[in-house]
Design a protein around this nucleic acid. Structure first.
Lengths: 193, 193
DNA sequence: TGTTTAAAGTAAACATCGTTCAGAGTTTTT
DNA sequence: AAAAACTCTGAACGATGTTTACTTTAAACA
């Protein structure tokens, strides 16, 4: 048994509160401490620094998407990847402000290794799995980025200067949607086989 | 003519210095002011706030990649896209710490519109051009992310738990290379036609 | 030409941030 | 019963982005 007094907060509860604060727009050590009923200094008993909290959240979010979707024997390989990718997209876009942190720590955490291994089981060529990860994480990152910055920030579009963009403006404004995500992923996967 | 004293620094020089500081690891208003020979408060005469400086840099970097590569009549369409993508990759990876800002402001700046319009000229389907942008920006973002965090952070890899990952570890460790970038882009483009 | 007006810049402060540290309190180990 | 290891508080430190008077400069206007 460890010496000293028992923790007054579960470490997971700290991460819960931290994710809440990220969703609300700003994760600060003081706000986090207040929310879990501690002093800022006490947080450094739980995690060495703020960055450790963020990467822990990133790994936990990565773990929320059901990895077993990649091993479902009832589905063809491409469908398994689509299912997992859609699940991951849903998990991450529920916390768009946390997505940049995931991109940064995408390949360091323990969960990322597990995702990579499972992907390799479906798509045995490492270059192909990396290409898929690039598309999936890239699409999620772009979509998350413009959810946090308040989308459509006064679109000044001159049809004379940007005729093609104007012509398909309806498609472009809908680029952040599950359908387009899935459409692009389907094309990427077909290009990889 | 505008009233008051002349500027003692060209606004572009402020952006140059700001990009230098980003490359060195930390862009601070105080450090930026010192570098251009001003007081922190004076910077707010040039830009409304720090975020404006960052997005201005993002747009300027986007402008550094030669857009005319997309219109080169001597090359087939897919080759044009590859050439521009490789050029953009080189420009952005020269400043990896600035890349997250570009992802964030990717579709707000004036230069981003120009890139989109040129892309549409060679790949007329908006969904396809968006898929290409996702791949290109995603690959660059992932590569930039692990250049700033000092790559290969003590890779503890258990071959029994991650057999497939271990088997292709050499490919995986080389995932950040122009060849793999181009390989994946080729597959994406072939899937789109 | 002399006065007004707007802009550039300085100096100093404000509020907030992550982080550290000495000490008080608590629990297990010896 | 004493010692050691741990949690937590309270207060501080240094650095950050930004704001606010105030001075100086130079164009615009009478």
């Amino acid at each position: 048994m460890t010496r000293g007094p028992r923790r007054s907060v579960q470490p997971d509860a700290v991460l819960d509160a931290a994710l809440e604060l990220i969703d609300e727009g700003a994760l600060t050590m003081r706000a986090l401490a207040a929310r879990v009923g501690l002093t800022p200094g006490a947080l450094y008993t739980y995690f060495p620094d703020r960055a450790a909290i963020v990467t822990a959240i990133a790994d936990r979010l990565l773990a929320e998407a059901d990895l077993s979707l990649l091993d479902d024997p009832a589905e063809p390989p491409h469908r398994r990847i689509e299912n997992y990718a859609l699940a991951l997209r849903e998990v991450l876009l529920a916390h768009p402000a946390a997505v940049p942190a995931i991109l940064g720590a995408a390949f360091n955490g323990p969960m990322a290794l597990r995702v990579g291994e499972s992907l390799l089981r479906v798509l045995p060529d490492a270059r192909a799995t990396y290409t898929v990860m690039v598309y999936v994480l890239g699409a999620i990152a772009l979509e998350a980025a413009d959810r946090v910055t308040g989308s459509t920030p006064s679109f000044e579009l001159d049809p004379a200067e940007f005729p093609l963009t104007s012509g398909q403006i309806d498609v472009i404004l809908a680029y952040n949607s599950a359908e387009q995500f899935q459409w692009g992923l389907g094309r990427v996967l077909s290009g990889l086989s």
